[in-house]
Write a protein that binds this DNA or RNA. Sequence first.
DNA 1: GATGAATGAGGATTCATTCAT
DNA 2: AATGAATGAATCCTCATTCAT
Lengths: 216, 216, 216, 216
Amino acid sequence: MKRPASKPRPRGRPPRAPEQSEARRRAILDAALVEFAAHGFAAARLDDVARRAGIAKGTLYLYFADKEALFEALVQGAIRPLLDNLQKVADLPDVPTRQVLKLLFATFAREVLGSDRKLLLRLLITEGARFPRLVTFYHAEIVAPGLALMHKLMTRAAARGEIANDAPARFPQLVMAPLLLAVVWDMLFGRIAALDVEGLIDAHVGLLVGEGRAAP
Amino acid sequence: MKRPASKPRPRGRPPRAPEQSEARRRAILDAALVEFAAHGFAAARLDDVARRAGIAKGTLYLYFADKEALFEALVQGAIRPLLDNLQKVADLPDVPTRQVLKLLFATFAREVLGSDRKLLLRLLITEGARFPRLVTFYHAEIVAPGLALMHKLMTRAAARGEIANDAPARFPQLVMAPLLLAVVWDMLFGRIAALDVEGLIDAHVGLLVGEGRAAP
Amino acid sequence: MKRPASKPRPRGRPPRAPEQSEARRRAILDAALVEFAAHGFAAARLDDVARRAGIAKGTLYLYFADKEALFEALVQGAIRPLLDNLQKVADLPDVPTRQVLKLLFATFAREVLGSDRKLLLRLLITEGARFPRLVTFYHAEIVAPGLALMHKLMTRAAARGEIANDAPARFPQLVMAPLLLAVVWDMLFGRIAALDVEGLIDAHVGLLVGEGRAAP
Amino acid sequence: MKRPASKPRPRGRPPRAPEQSEARRRAILDAALVEFAAHGFAAARLDDVARRAGIAKGTLYLYFADKEALFEALVQGAIRPLLDNLQKVADLPDVPTRQVLKLLFATFAREVLGSDRKLLLRLLITEGARFPRLVTFYHAEIVAPGLALMHKLMTRAAARGEIANDAPARFPQLVMAPLLLAVVWDMLFGRIAALDVEGLIDAHVGLLVGEGRAAP
DNA sequence: GATGAATGAGGATTCATTCAT
DNA sequence: AATGAATGAATCCTCATTCAT
């Protein structure tokens, strides 16, 4: 009896500069990254994402169909840079394995562990089970190629006698395992006991290509 | 002999009679493990937990104060067995490091990766960030002691010349990293490409204690 | 950062007598009838339905899957009584057509136009286009059989010379049209100018079976 | 010749230039008719109306104050033509009632049932309850005068002995009822079982003015 | 005049939690 | 102790309306 009668009080948009839509998209993704990483997909509130992005709730939906699409775009969008990094390593000239690994790990430490990108890895790990599509894509585009590359690298290193045995060639995952550990450690125990990532990586490289052994 | 069942159903407690409340607690925890692991803490429904445990929703609250308490009890409760396993390793007589590691990893593969206990690790990884108390406890009770033990083991091994350098002694996490990787891999990529955990572990042990090197 | 911490303030149900679930279902349907009829399907608020039914919003969902299901149950449920009424007419002994019609129309006027059941017809008319399933069902169960019955009745009447021609036999809808008009009139113009339904019906019967003509 | 179109699109008003605002108003009304008829007032989206009209959403508000005003203008605007049609019938010379009715009904069938104008009637029926002002207006301008006219027509016909009794004179609604039925039938059951409107109307005229009876 | 991105109140739906039985 | 119907706060998403350009 009151619905059509009471003209809903005027709503609309308060004056806000125009800003390029792409910047806004980025702002939303940045905000989403923080909120999703902090609370997880299910517990994150789009309300908070909007507030953090400095926009209205409804505006989110101009850029992303729904919560899930936002999440997927978030994780999806991070894959391209990772791919690029991977490519750089693949294109490395024929330098000693030790150097390749050092560079690779250092890059990872800087670009991922040392930046917000780390949060994306977190999300992939913590929410992956709920987003099979994303995981499948990520496996096909990053993990499998990355491992293949590592396999080649390690095979060559083994042939050259740079590493003690062919274990890392057969299981390139072994080469990456400490990086994953670093991510998870930071995510869980970072507050309690920070991990000396650099030291860890150095030690790992030492283990792989044998330090002292090189100059007996 | 069980005549009472044919009475006009008392509308309230089902005729399940006196049963040990401890069994019920277990049933709830088992059900909770499955549901939490499948959907994550936030998305899991206590309704489903109750149904899976074969009890009424309200009954949950007779055993656990709330959803969070249930979750914590779940993860907490799994720590004791882990502790015990750890102790067993610590108590090992003075056997070769290679054997200790083999035993340790095999036990982990069997008791954790090969059982539902794997789900608990998953939960710790995926939900840990939201349960600092749990993570703190886990770190204090399991991770720190475990790493300390590993440190001792590796230090001894290095002193004995069983391993090439002191990297694993300084970063005992390196020893555990592949196990973590196995858990995460299974959790994310298990469906896509199963990991040969046994092979991975063997290779890892080979890398640590040097296979071929032993018999030149 | 605050989600899992702040235990949501205790909610639950305030003391309310048990009442049989069936009565509650009825209360909901009754409330829904009023609200849907007053505002239409889209504009009706389940909140209002709940309030009118004297229950909490969430309780609705214990009885009906969603708004649509509630609406369909509402209209669906009204079909049974209509069917029964129809059957009564069909079972009438071989009385004069005039009397059959009088009875039929009087019943309709009393049972439908004179009661809340009229609202259901309204809903069918106003919302039917949005609920094809409902309309299909209604056509198959009520309209088609009803027209078939009317066809038989009018054919017999024509054969007996009780009516002037076979128009009503060929288009039994003609017999019902004034009833529909009465419903729509009441729905739209009832407030402005009440319709003398009884007079209308009498006049219609007179038109059909010829009043004065019979006894000049 | 239409070079301006190749200028760097002025980002704002499309180069549609000066066009008559009246045409645009019509386009909006036409689009609104379709959308409102398809979904009902509450469920129709102004977004869709704008898209269908080929204009921007904001432009709607240059022509109509709000959704309600648009709806009212829509239904209101259709009344004029109906009035005109009515007038034509009223102005008919003194021809036989049968012919007047035939013409009236045929006009209705062609101009209303056979055109998009039918949708307007639908809207009046389905949404009328929510727009009392509209219904009042419609009653005053169309229904009451129409019935008055019909009353006069039927009274004259009865006096002349063209119809069997004075029922239609006393309840001119009876004359219109089948038309209403045709509208509602089409609206609800059109998909399921098309109605032979022409046949229905013929039969109805036959019933009113007596077919065979005229020439015994 | 025209645009359409932005707004935010509103409403459907979910689910942890309670409590009369 | 156990039940499960009832509760209502919380949150996603929609869409009428506005206004800077």
